[in-house]
């Protein structure tokens, strides 16, 4: 065997490294925008959270002590983070087959599917949420169907329950999961599954050993977006979740708008943000691990 050189492989890899030029200046407007409209308010938020009293007269860690000193607050935080986990898991469960179906469809079917997937993004979240109220109400579509099929004798309580909220959030956030998944799955070489089948693996084995690990970057990206969107979905949480289910966004709203307790609201905002950031970083770590795995 002669010495093997593979310029075809080495070439694009080196060419892909951008030469550092003056392109970074293009990012300056955005950086300035972030500094003015994101970093500054964030620092203000931190500053406000460090007031010891609602009247903002003296500094202290009282707000944080108050938050962590009451198990009720921790329960609200916990249930919010858990809500995100439930929504993300279900979105993945339903979104993955949808994305997979998309990559397996012909062009006409793909156009139809992408419309169905994008459609929720093109309607206001308020409209979508009200649609869920109509669906889940006592006199709503689900209950009418159950009653007419004789599956229930009296209408079930679906609206203002966590199950109803999770269902609505799953639908509302679906595009955030499906779009990254489609991107990853479309890039998968269809020959890989043919190879797997020819080597004797059944469809499930092929899925678990080939498709699933190779689509991990898309799964991580989709979960990240869905999770962040689900835990902060103020409108859907309050309109479908109702007035007695308290999640962090409503809690913050209540403390600011109704009670004008800005320091406590700021403190719980910071706590919430750090918690979500923690979960997001966990996802990111997973994502980096999976990327190393795929592109080693």
């Amino acid at each position: 065997m002669t010495a093997i050189t593979a310029p075809g492989l080495a070439g694009p890899a080196t060419a892909a490294w951008p030469r550092i030029g003056r392109e970074w200046t293009l990012a300056l407007p955005l950086a300035a925008f972030f500094a003015v409209f994101f970093v500054t308010p964030l620092l203000l938020l931190v500053a406000v959270s460090l007031y010891a009293d609602a009247e903002m007269t003296r500094f202290g860690l009282d707000q944080y002590i108050r938050f962590f000193g009451d198990t009720f607050n921790l329960a609200v935080l916990g249930s919010t983070l858990l809500l995100g986990v439930k929504v993300t898991a279900l979105t993945l469960l339903f979104g993955y087959p949808l994305a997979w179906l998309y990559t397996r469809s012909g062009p006409r079917m793909q156009s139809a599917l992408i419309l169905v997937i994008i459609l929720p993004l093109l309607t206001s979240v308020v409209v979508r949420t009200f649609a869920w109220i109509v669906i889940l109400g006592r006199d709503g579509i689900v209950n009418n169907l159950l009653l007419s099929l004789g599956l229930a004798e009296t209408p079930l309580r679906l609206l203002y329950t966590e199950g109803g909220l999770v269902a609505a959030l799953v639908q509302v956030q679906m595009p955030l999961m499906v779009l990254p998944l489609i991107t990853t799955l479309s890039r998968l070489d269809p020959n890989l599954l043919d190879a797997s089948a020819a080597l004797g693996a059944g469809p499930w084995r092929g899925f678990l050993k080939v498709t699933l690990p190779l689509s991990l970057p898309g799964i991580v990206a989709g979960c990240l977006l869905t999770y962040a969107a689900a835990v902060t979905a103020f409108i859907t949480q309050s309109l479908v979740g109702g007035g007695q289910m308290l999640f962090m966004p409503q809690y913050i709203y209540q403390q600011t708008i109704t009670l004008h307790n800005w320091p406590f609201a700021a403190a719980i905002s910071i706590v919430f943000m750090m918690s979500v950031l923690g979960v997001v970083m966990l996802f990111n770590l997973l994502g980096r691990a999976s990327k190393g795995y795929v592109h080693a």
Partner: peptide, 20 residues
Amino acid sequence: LPPAGRGVGIVFQNYALFPH
């Protein structure tokens, strides 16, 4: 018979090696 049952080994044009 599905591919697995036919006793064929196949080498694809792009090799289709499992990258992971």
